[in-house]
Amino acid sequence: MNHIFSFFVLGGIIAAAINGKIDVVTTAAMTAAGSAVQRAIALIGIVGLWMGIARVAEKSGLIDKLSHLIAPLFSWLFPSIPKNHPALGCILMNLSANILGFGNAATPFGLKAMQELQKLNNDPDTASEAMCTFLAINTSSVTLIPTTLIALRASAGSKNPSEIVGTVLFATTCSTITAIISDMIIRNLYRRRKYN
């Protein structure tokens, strides 16, 4: 993340200089800082709501039950998470919300899952393998029904707004499979480098 951060900032400033619009950098930085806080404020309410609900689900044992249900699939994807750990239930809730296109509900469950994964992490400064796998699946965006997208196409006057459901499903499956396979390969490469 450190390299990416400096790449964006330094690359951006150099590009602005080349393009002869160096003043854009100042405005962009100021505006972005403002909208980051706005975004965070909006997030407080949504995260509060879903974390409250998640806590109720957790206390009642619902999340444990869910974790139990999907243990076989997840023990293959996340070998480092113990069976029936609440992290699995949170990951399931996050992925289901993502699959159905509810981005707002997905983020709080994802954050909750990260919290649970952090409890299992030996080095609290560094991402664990399970976290990398979770984020790989998450950023590759497993979408079954792109709800927002269909609405957007309809409002732009498309004759058949949902015609892209099939192509989205194909592309998202490809990217998720790529994410899972490359996660397994890179994880092993990292392990080897650690032991040598």
Partner: peptide
């Protein structure tokens, strides 16, 4: 996601994300 639990070293996560984006 990493920020919420205070993780600074993201290891190969960014690489995985970019690979998935490229595949998509």
């Amino acid at each position: 996601y990493f920020g919420s639990v205070g993780i600074r070293k993201t290891r190969y996560s960014v690489l995985l994300g970019l690979l998935a984006d490229f595949a998509s």
